[in-house]
Structure formats: structure tokens, C-alpha cells
Design a protein around this nucleic acid. Structure first.
Length: 113
DNA sequence: TGATTGACCAACT
DNA sequence: CAGTTGGCCAATC
């Protein structure tokens, strides 16, 4: 079978490891997977993550500016912000506040994954 | 089966 | 400083 885990599967693995109250960016995940230029695919994977179970906390993935660029892809545009705020992350005008502190970099946190 | 697009990012003009 | 372009992988037209 597919002994190889597809890029999408790797993305799911990383996203599921994002701790509560933290968030990361599409580019950071892509870079961690060794495909820094494939940040778009991470977003594409999130789009497909709805087919997966609700085990993928896609709301914890934003763009490099901490902006909720994917909010439109949840059922309600308010869901993403509400989910983040429920975890203690402040969001103003679709942008995460204290982004520097909230940002969770898998390349740093997952040293030997 | 080729072209287009997509929840991005960095470099270039 | 703002707009454009190239790049990556996978799914859709």
C-alpha cells in the first residue's frame, strides 16, 4: 500500500499536534515538512481536512501575519475566531494579537519528530 | 490529458 | 511602497 505518507497526511500529523491556545502558519508547517514553497498545499490540505474527522484543529492555522485568512472556509465565518478566543487567543479584526507569543513553530517545538 | 486554481510566501519590479 | 511573479503539490475543469 502507500508506505509513503502523502504531503497532506504529514500536514494533518503536524496540525493535530498544535497545542491548545497556540497557533501556527501555513508556511511554518510547509517549511517543517521540507517544502517551504508549498505553503499553499497546507491550506489545500485544510480544505480537504473537513473530509477527515474533526480531529484537525484547522482553526489554529493562519497565515504568516496571524490573519485568519481561512475563516471563510468554516461553516460560519465567526467560528474560527470564536474557536481561537475560546482557547485564550485574542483576535481583533481577523488578526491574532500577540502573534509573536502565540505562534507555535513545529520546527522548534518538534525537534525530533 | 493539459490547463487552471487554490485557506501561501518570498523575491522582484 | 504597492503590485506582480514564480514556485510547490494535489484536485478540479
Amino acid at each position: 500500500m502507500q508506505g509513503d505518507i502523502s504531503f497532506f497526511e504529514k500536514v494533518y500529523q503536524v496540525v493535530m499536534l498544535i497545542p491548545k491556545g497556540r497557533a501556527t502558519s501555513y508556511g511554518a508547517i510547509a517549511q517543517y515538512l521540507g517544502a517551504a514553497k508549498s505553503a499553499r498545499m497546507v491550506g489545500w490540505a485544510m480544505n480537504a481536512s473537513k473530509m477527515k474527522l474533526d480531529k484537525i484543529p484547522a482553526h489554529r492555522v493562519v497565515n504568516r501575519n496571524g490573519i485568519l485568512s481561512g475563516k471563510a472556509h468554516f461553516g460560519d465565518t465567526r467560528f474560527m475566531q470564536a474557536a481561537l478566543e475560546a482557547e485564550g487567543i485574542k483576535v481583533v479584526d481577523d488578526k491574532i494579537q500577540d502573534w509573536g507569543k502565540v505562534f507555535w513553530d513545529p520546527a522548534i517545538e518538534l525537534n525530533d519528530f
